[in-house]
Simulated assay, not measured.
Amino acid sequence: MFGKKDSDNKQDSDLILLRTASNNYELGLIEGLLEDHHIPYLVQDRGVGGYLRIYAGSSIYGTDIMVGKTYFDQAKAIMDEVDWDETSQVSEEELEKAAQEAAVDETE
């Protein structure tokens, strides 16, 4: 999608910032929603955030999620359906419990 060269698809290569994820849980949620709706996206860490995410598992700088112009309205509508205040209140214990439950479901 983003590598096309012909002029009819120029609009697809114009990336727009959809949202900045503040933690790995939010990033995973956004990626999952976009993948479920077959919306191509690009993840771009801010500053040294990419190194921090690799080394420490998360980044304090945030991660930008970019989509093409033609997908922006659809992706924005999907993001608007999520209660972002609720997602930021998820505790580490709840995240760990959800991950363990997901691992159990995959093994069954």
Rank of each mutant, 00 (worst) to 15 (best):
K10P: 00
L52P: 00
R53G: 05
V82T: 08
E101I: 12
P40H: 04
L17R: 06
Y41W: 10
G50C: 04
E108Y: 11
L27T: 00
Y61P: 00
K69W: 01
Q44P: 08
A56L: 15
E81Y: 03
L18M: 06
S13N: 14
A77L: 13
Y61V: 03
S91T: 15
V82H: 01
T70D: 02
K97Y: 09
R19C: 02
L42M: 10
Q11E: 09
Y71H: 15
D14I: 15
Y41E: 04
A77C: 05
P40Q: 10
G3D: 05
Y51E: 04
Y71Q: 14
A98K: 12
L29F: 06
K97N: 08
D12C: 04
A103C: 08
V43L: 10
Q11L: 10
D14R: 15
T20I: 03
I30K: 03
E106H: 09
I39M: 01
I39P: 00
F72R: 06
T70K: 14
I78R: 03
E81L: 11
M1I: 09
A77N: 07
A75H: 08
E86V: 14
A75W: 10
K76G: 01
D12P: 00
Y25D: 03
S88L: 14
A77W: 03
L52Y: 09
N24I: 09
A56F: 13
D14E: 09
F72I: 01
T107R: 11
D64Y: 06
L34Q: 00
G49Y: 05
W84S: 01
E101G: 12
A75F: 12
D36N: 13
E86Y: 12
L42I: 13
H37Y: 07
D14P: 00
L33N: 03
A98L: 04
A77Q: 11
I16K: 12
D85Q: 15
L15I: 06
E101F: 12
Y25P: 00
A56W: 05
Q89L: 14
L95V: 13
I16G: 01
I60S: 10
Y55K: 11
I65Y: 05
G62Y: 06
L33T: 15
G3N: 09
